[in-house]
């Protein structure tokens, strides 16, 4: 299955949760938010959110700016 995480296409084996997808990028316990296909998914729902083939995941955090 192929999902796009922060703009990068990745092959993942079988069904994967949003929590697992985020964990590919960061282990930060806080200060991170995720959206699937443009819709924000609350942190409490990451584990139960299953990604489908072609899903686009965005994982954002705060950086210096403004």
């Amino acid at each position: 299955m192929r999902v796009i995480i922060n703009g990068e296409a990745r092959q993942v084996a079988g069904p994967i949760s949003l929590a697992a997808a985020v964990a590919l990028l960061t282990s930060a316990p806080s200060g991170v938010a995720a959206a699937v296909n443009g819709d924000v998914v609350r942190r409490g729902a990451w584990q139960s959110t299953r990604l489908a083939d072609g899903d686009e995941v965005e994982v954002l955090t705060a950086v210096q700016g403004g």
Binding site: L25, G31, V59, T61, V63, Q64, G66
Partner: peptide
Amino acid sequence: TTVAMRRVSPASAGSVLDLLTERGIRVLPN
């Protein structure tokens, strides 16, 4: 104090968020 929101990068070093929290400065995302 403002911060920007960007894609998580494994390379990002240090956290501006930790700094603001330690100083007790309220964060204003842009």
